[in-house]
């Protein structure tokens, strides 16, 4: 958890420095997106195809948002940042859902194994 905070802080600093020459990005939003990306990675989003797709979209949109901000297009950057946020959030949720569904499958498998033992 501490490691994640450090990464987010570094990212914020980097974005702030980059923003010096162009439009300003909403740093709270940037931090929020980055947190969601890290959290999605932590729950295994890279291992689940649909979650991995949205995680990649989030990364690309973040990069595009930075580029637009650098080019002085603050509004466009803000829109892309919002897209990145929902994609990262969806990636994390998809990975979590997959995890819980797998746990449910294992729980039912345990019951089936128990029933086999009883026969």
């Amino acid at each position: 958890m501490h490691h994640i905070r450090e990464r987010v802080a570094l990212l914020v600093l980097g974005l702030t420095a980059a923003a010096c020459g162009g439009a300003q990005l909403n740093q709270a939003r940037v931090a929020e997106v980055q947190s969601s990306v890290v959290a999605a990675e932590a729950v295994g989003a890279n291992d689940q195809p649909r979650a991995a797709l949205h995680l990649q979209l989030a990364r690309d949109e973040m990069a595009e948002a930075r580029r637009l901000a650098d080019d002085g297009d603050g509004d466009g950057a803000a829109l892309l940042l919002e897209r990145a946020r929902v994609d990262a959030e969806l990636a994390m949720q998809l990975a979590k859902t997959e995890q819980e569904q797998e746990k449910a499958r294992q729980a039912w498998q345990k019951i089936q194994d128990l029933q086999k033992e009883q026969r």
Binding site: H54, V86, L90, Q93, T97, E100, Q101, K103, A104
Partner: peptide
């Protein structure tokens, strides 16, 4: 679109948790 997909995924997670509880 993403919000709708998110709503579906969250519901699926809740359903999986319920199934886990029932299975336990």
């Amino acid at each position: 679109t993403r919000k709708s997909e998110l709503a579906i995924a969250q519901a699926s997670e809740a359903l999986a948790l319920k199934e886990q509880q029932r299975a336990e």
